[in-house]
C-alpha cells in the first residue's frame, strides 16, 4: 500500500516530444532503447534459428565428407564471391544511412537506402542465376527432387538439401529486409526521421548487418570447402 506514492508526472519533456513517441514511454530515448533491446533479442533468435541448420550441416558434413568435397564443385565460387562483396557494400551504405539519419541529413539517408536496396536486389538476381543453373542440372534439394545424373559420390543430395535450405532461408531474410527497407524509404521521403526519432532506421540497420553476417558464414561453409 505504501510502497509507492504517486508523484505528479505527466510527459515532462514536451518540447522534445516526437509525434511517433508512444504514450506508454516517458521519453523518446526510453522508447528507442526499448526497441533496440527488442531488436537485439530478435536477432538472437535469428542466430539460433540458423544455428539449428548450421549444426545439422556440420553433422552431415562429418558423415559424408567425400560427398561434401565433390558436391561443392558444382557451386560457382565467383558468383558467391560477387555476392559477398555486394552484401558488404550494402552493409556499408546501411551504416551510412543510419549516420545520415542521426545527423538529420535526409538526402543522404535516402540515397544510402537506395543503394542498399539495389545491392540487395543484385544479390537476389545473382542468386537466381545460381539457382536456375542448379535447377537445370537437377542439383535440387531433398531425396524427392534431386535428380542429377552425372558422376557423384553417395550423399551429395544431403549437401544440396543444406545448400538450398540455408541459402533459401537467408534469401527470405533478404527479401523481408527489402520490404522493410522500402517502407523505411517511404517514411524517409515523408520526412519522418530526424535526429530526435530514427529508431526504424536504426533497427533495420541492425537486422541488415545480421543478414550480412550470416552470409559471411555461409559463403565459406558452402563454397570454399577444402
Amino acid at each position: 500500500m505504501s510502497v509507492a506514492e504517486n508523484i505528479e508526472h505527466g510527459h515532462g519533456h514536451a518540447a522534445e516530444l516526437s509525434p511517433f513517441q508512444q504514450h506508454h514511454f516517458a521519453t523518446a530515448q526510453q522508447q528507442n532503447e526499448a526497441s533496440k533491446i527488442g531488436m537485439w533479442l530478435f536477432l538472437v533468435t535469428e542466430v539460433l534459428l540458423f544455428g539449428g541448420l548450421f549444426v545439422g550441416y556440420g553433422l552431415s558434413h562429418a558423415k559424408f565428407p567425400e560427398a561434401w568435397k565433390s558436391a561443392h564443385h558444382h557451386l560457382q565460387r565467383e558468383l558467391g564471391a560477387l555476392n559477398t562483396v555486394v552484401l558488404l557494400v550494402s552493409s556499408f551504405t546501411m551504416v551510412m544511412a543510419v549516420q545520415a539519419a542521426k545527423l538529420n541529413r535526409r538526402k543522404q539517408l535516402i540515397g544510402n537506402l537506395w543503394v542498399t536496396i539495389i545491392c540487395a536486389c543484385i544479390f537476389l538476381v545473382v542468386k537466381y542465376f545460381e539457382y536456375s543453373h542448379k535447377y537445370h542440372e537437377g542439383l535440387l534439394p531433398f531425396k524427392a527432387f534431386y535428380s542429377y545424373q552425372g558422376p557423384q559420390v553417395p550423399g551429395e543430395f544431403h549437401f544440396f538439401s543444406f545448400y538450398f535450405m540455408m541459402t533459401g532461408l537467408h534469401g527470405f531474410h533478404i527479401l523481408g529486409g527489402i520490404a522493410v527497407l522500402l517502407w523505411v524509404l517511404k517514411r524517409s521521403y515523408a520526412g519522418d526521421f530526424t535526429s530526435a526519432y530514427y529508431t526504424p532506421v536504426d533497427l533495420i540497420g541492425l537486422y541488415w548487418h545480421l543478414v550480412d553476417l550470416i552470409w559471411i558464414y555461409l559463403f565459406p561453409l558452402l563454397y570454399l570447402i577444402s
Binding site: 533479442l41 538472437v44 533468435t45 535469428e46 539460433l48 534459428l49 544455428g51 539449428g52 541448420l53 545439422g56 553433422l59 552431415s60 534439394p141 531433398f142 531425396k143 524427392a144 527432387f145 550423399g155 543430395f157 544431403h158 538439401s161 535450405m165
Partner: peptide, 25 residues
C-alpha cells in the same frame, strides 16, 4: 523463451521437410 524456442522452430521445419521430401538428417 527467446533462447530455446527458435530451435524447436527449426526442428519442426526440418521434420516437416524430412517427411515431405526427405532431407536425410
Amino acid at each position: 523463451q527467446v533462447l530455446a524456442t527458435p530451435v524447436i522452430g527449426i526442428t519442426m521445419v526440418l521434420l516437416g521437410l524430412e517427411r515431405a521430401f526427405g532431407i536425410g538428417i
